[in-house]
Design a protein around this nucleic acid. Sequence first.
DNA 1: GATGAATGAGGCTTCATTCAT
DNA 2: CATGAATGAAGCCTCATTCAT
Lengths: 217, 217, 217, 217
Amino acid sequence: MPNSLAAKVAPSRRRRKEARPAELTAAALDVFVEKGYAATRLEDVAAQAGVSKGTLYLYFDSKEALFKAVVREGILPALTEGETLVAGFKGSSEDLLREVIGGMWRLIGSQRIGGIPKLVFAEARNFPEIASFYHQEVIMRGTAMIRSVIERGIKRKEFRKVNVDATVYLVIGPVLMRMIWRHSLDCCLAANVDDKAYFDEYFAIMLRGLWAERKAS
Amino acid sequence: MPNSLAAKVAPSRRRRKEARPAELTAAALDVFVEKGYAATRLEDVAAQAGVSKGTLYLYFDSKEALFKAVVREGILPALTEGETLVAGFKGSSEDLLREVIGGMWRLIGSQRIGGIPKLVFAEARNFPEIASFYHQEVIMRGTAMIRSVIERGIKRKEFRKVNVDATVYLVIGPVLMRMIWRHSLDCCLAANVDDKAYFDEYFAIMLRGLWAERKAS
Amino acid sequence: MPNSLAAKVAPSRRRRKEARPAELTAAALDVFVEKGYAATRLEDVAAQAGVSKGTLYLYFDSKEALFKAVVREGILPALTEGETLVAGFKGSSEDLLREVIGGMWRLIGSQRIGGIPKLVFAEARNFPEIASFYHQEVIMRGTAMIRSVIERGIKRKEFRKVNVDATVYLVIGPVLMRMIWRHSLDCCLAANVDDKAYFDEYFAIMLRGLWAERKAS
Amino acid sequence: MPNSLAAKVAPSRRRRKEARPAELTAAALDVFVEKGYAATRLEDVAAQAGVSKGTLYLYFDSKEALFKAVVREGILPALTEGETLVAGFKGSSEDLLREVIGGMWRLIGSQRIGGIPKLVFAEARNFPEIASFYHQEVIMRGTAMIRSVIERGIKRKEFRKVNVDATVYLVIGPVLMRMIWRHSLDCCLAANVDDKAYFDEYFAIMLRGLWAERKAS
DNA sequence: GATGAATGAGGCTTCATTCAT
DNA sequence: CATGAATGAAGCCTCATTCAT
């Protein structure tokens, strides 16, 4: 078999070996999000990845380990990307919020990994370890990011003196909710929600809700 | 077990017989919410209800039927109660919104049935029939209720001319999110969210977000 | 179905429930002895017992638990029977040894449970817990029985002052070996060893080997 | 790995190539004896031999073929050595017996290949072919050797006119039993049997059991 | 009606074997 | 020759469902 051709239809053994875990978690993500943890059959994951059932066990010790890897690897890169975005921002806090929430949706919510929150919320009680990990590594970091935006806005008198603890959850809530919805009820129904209108109105309401009083004039 | 003793620890036979299905769905709700559909074992449900496994089949044809009954019976009564509340309301739309959302939390969110949304969102793709039913009977009716409140506010010039379709979801989103959170991550973690502060800030933000412009002065 | 008939072809549910564990271990013994632990499929055990695979799990937590039960329950009753036999013996030590070894062969070696030693010796290293149990409960008690016979013979000057520790193993060794052989090589070959001749010669040699010097005249 | 380095830690390529099968069966022997046939994973054998799993298949067609090779190659050389020892013996039959049994223990029983009898007895029913081979090539030759010693003793009036068929098994039984014991229960327990005392007493008993009557005076 | 013993289909997991590199 | 990634058949175990009592 000529290498030049083989390289396209079947990557070299060594390359595949390195790429495999990511291929497998990607396939697993699809199936886990579609079926939920328990209803996911490893056979389906394998089929989705185009490998045999046994191959999964070359890279992951168990179904649980695969699930954890999906959650871990799925969300962290996007989160990091988001954090760097926030760190260097110069403009108004309103624009920053738009950037952060918009980015969260573009980078996570509207992507395949946007299915992870549904998974995590659904399975948290069965996998306390995952719940704990997700809380520490994703929720805490995510809320810290939002918190810094809100506190920035308050400090710069752009935002009201809101209860920051609560507001953080109110700000990300609709984003998470949209992700969850998108991967559950939306899938079964003809009439879906219009994401554009949803987020436009989200910003309209949320910013009015946050603006310092004088701003409203 | 002698009847004389049983009579003391349990309601009379006749009463039990009629109450059985409700006792069973109540027990099932607990377990379904804790474990999710697939990870719930009927043996656990039976144990929780204090009956034998076989007894479940006297009242429900299958695990799926039991699940559907849990979803159906769990949420509808509370919803009806909410609808009557809205219909006869006289005060301001702001107060109505407070009443509706507050009632939704008091009657549903903070109760055991508040676990159902998590269940439904988690299992919607596995049970299209449930998703469809829930969409029709709960989401549609619930959003219609919210919609009527928003449209009432707009008509009375209390609220801005928001995009109603989107706003409906933005209004119930944080409530649903809070229910879901309460039955997943909150269960595994020490530090929970303060519901009082959460809803206080919810109303502060949401109402500022909805108020017609002049109101802000 | 008339009870009188049913009682013969299908014992009442309650009776079976109590008898089941013994039926299952009996079936399991057969298959374990024939195949060894690892090569035994629970499906075969179930088939041998005339039940379904799942039924095994109503009575035993796992294959390992079943195996342990087979070893435990198989050998102890016979051992106890042997001990009582020894305790009340009155005659010569030679006759006692004949009685003990003969009984060991009649009650254990030539029965189905005679397959257990092969099992235990084969699997000891995979099941240290079983090895330990078997050592404590069977080997120790069995050797103690033999030891008491030998010490009785020495005290009564019927036997030489042998090294008791070693002799104990030399006395039971040929019996165990016969059991093991019977359940392994004997099964695959046409020409078997004649048990009668084997034990006649065993006593001839062993007793000459044990007798005090003067006896030989 | 550069050859120059490999040359220092391992024999030259040519040597290894020839020695490979023996290295592999040696490694396999260790693992088979420890785990038993079924519980032995070829991966463990490969690791023990310091090669990859695939390499085993360059030298042996299958796990079963490897097992057979282990049994075949393990015991035959030692047996041949024993036979030549017997053939040329000049002294008394008692001394010959001591030599043969002592040699059997020194050359086989106390060596790694002493684990083979346990293996064979454990797996005989699963591998009739091995049972048959072992019976023919090892048991028959071994018993023939013992038989010739006993018949020599009888012919020379050193031994009683025992039942030779049975006596042969009684003579090798304690040796085999010791081998089996050494590789099973002994491995799991602190207090082992003293081989020296065991064989001293073995000879004491066995020879008294075999001696012609007059000898006992 | 109520029970719980029994069933057996189905999923996770292991591992002997193959084969491209 | 040697490797080790990949395969897939096979076995343990679970649990929804049935049914005799």
